[in-house]
Design a binder for these strands. Structure first.
Length: 152
DNA sequence: CTTTTATAACAGC
DNA sequence: GCTGTTATAAAAG
């Protein structure tokens, strides 16, 4: 299946869902100006992302995403995909659950191609925020979005 | 507070 | 295989 892109509009700008109809290959957050040179084709995840960015509690865990990894990296990403909306964990807790080291969790999450669908922003460091591939500003923004939705 | 050290897995060679 | 890197964490100074 030839890849295509489904744009979504947010108050932060335009983002893109790259997909092959069967699976989501990549999520491009607004402001990362990585404009994919691909045909435009609808995908439901784009609509859900628009709702999510407006503050609605959307559950993305049923979407099928491509995980371009194997071994522990794949296991970490699959585990993190199941973290529910508004919940947070630490690198250490994920590591313990999977029988590995916190640094490996960071390494795995830094390879995530599909932010929000795989909610890697819900994994924070024990003391502080932890890193984020697209800038900590986005991580703060996403966490704040989910907190305010749940009214905390 | 800052620096060091232990630690697991990967990429690139 | 070895080396440098990685979104960590705990302990030492």
């Amino acid at each position: 299946m030839t890849p295509a892109v489904a744009p979504f509009e947010t108050r932060f700008g335009t983002g893109y869902v790259v997909h092959d109809r069967r699976r989501v290959l990549k999520v491009i957050l607004p402001g990362t100006d990585d404009r994919p040179e691909l045909p435009v084709r609808y995908h439901p995840a784009a609509e859900d992302l628009e709702r999510y960015m407006k503050g609605e509690p959307v559950d993305f865990s049923e979407y099928s995403v491509r995980i371009p990894a194997s071994g522990i990296v794949e296991r970490v990403l699959r585990y993190v995909k199941q973290i529910p909306y508004g919940d947070t964990t630490t690198y250490g807790e994920v590591a313990e659950a999977l029988g590995t080291h916190p640094r490996i969790v960071g390494l795995a999450l830094s390879r995530n191609e599909t932010p929000v669908l795989i909610p890697c922003h819900r994994v924070v460091s024990k003391e502080g925020l932890g890193g984020f591939r697209w800038g900590k500003e986005w991580k703060r923004r996403l966490l704040k979005l989910e907190r305010s939705t749940l009214g905390r």
